[in-house]
Design a protein around this nucleic acid. Structure first.
Lengths: 119, 119, 119, 119
DNA sequence: GTGGTCTAGACCACG
DNA sequence: GTGGTCTAGACCACG
């Protein structure tokens, strides 16, 4: 899986990596049990600080998306805990995005189409 | 319209206000031509600095949502420019949210329902 | 001559009126000796404060574009003093505009064409 | 690159800095990828507040002229988006300047020569 | 009275 | 060390 950093983005690098890995898991590109690159390897590949990658992995771990241990490194979790709900933060973000899209004259159907595409 | 600040949020205060006003315009709670509170009044009401509110208003102005002048204060714009597209940033955010929702076991229908509700 | 105020502009109203009158004189729409509306009449027509129009007329007078007296009201000057030079402020503005246009990929010819059109 | 502030100017300080940087980029004095001074360094150099410089950088960023991040500081963007058009505001300004120059007895050729020089 | 600008100073997240 | 955010307070031009 290829991680791409947008240097112009306001989203912190560690969050960009985190998001791409989460999307990778969601899309199936990363399956349960799959090994992630070591912190060192990924940092080298992207050309960033190891601390940044480390922060990403710790976040993914605390969110329950991956497991890490010294022996096996980082792996995608086999059974990701399913809360069955959208977090309040994400709901708020969703509402903001829908509002902005609506004010920009984007029809509801087009947003629904994007949901279809991304899901 | 009541503005509520979450002081524990990672979203900067000026952005929280901005988002709520945008959502207020989108929902129709704020109509074109409606007067917004003065910078000082809103700052006092929320209990924050006037500079922070000023930053919000300037952002909303530069985005084309409101107008500001010394005579009329801040008002919702009558004709908001419609780009007809969802910004790349918002698309990326949408994709992230959908991915997370999917991994949490939220069915697609439920997201669609939220879109319906927010639009 | 019709004066149009752009309520969305950052340019102060008194300056917008001033600019339009100067451009009117330059284009010949307003000739030397032509009577300008009274402060009161113009203020009423545009729907603004008389003080604002008054400020405009005082500025135009001090710049040597018009004359004002109680008997004849405001009139375009017959002989406008010609400095034969572009003011330093206008040079700086011109340089800024040219720089921005250049960075936007506007060819020099197009700017020259605009000069032709406006002169 | 040396930034010079005219403290008697009506142009706000943050805008004066912004203009000079834009002109520096246009003239080639500042090339794509070039590092700008840090917010603190520039503030100290000019003898103004860091907030004012920060405002400048955020403006330049939102206009697409520079990028800022915590690692690299502020840098001139490699690829500046080209709208290929002169903004309405700049056209209006240009028209005003041409009108004033014309009334001052400045021949059209001299304005054209300035455009040549600045472009 | 209004928004716009600026200061001096502080704290924070990111890397 | 960097830019980003925020405060408390001040002054200003515009209208």
């Amino acid at each position: 899986m290829i991680i791409k950093i947008d240097e112009y983005s306001d989203v912190p690098i560690y969050m960009q990596i985190r998001n791409q890995i989460v999307m990778g898991i969601s899309s199936g590109e990363l399956a349960g049990g799959d090994q992630l690159p070591t912190v060192r390897a990924l940092a080298l590949e992207i050309g960033i600080n190891t601390m940044t990658v480390s922060k990403t992995y710790q976040m993914l771990k605390s969110e329950g998306y991956i497991t890490t241990d010294r022996k096996n490194g980082a792996r995608v979790r086999q059974q990701i805990e399913q809360s069955k709900v959208i977090s309040e933060d994400n709901k708020r973000e969703l509402r903001r995005i829908v509002s902005e899209a609506r004010l920009s004259g984007v029809p509801k159907k087009e947003i629904q189409k994007l949901i279809d595409e991304y899901y």
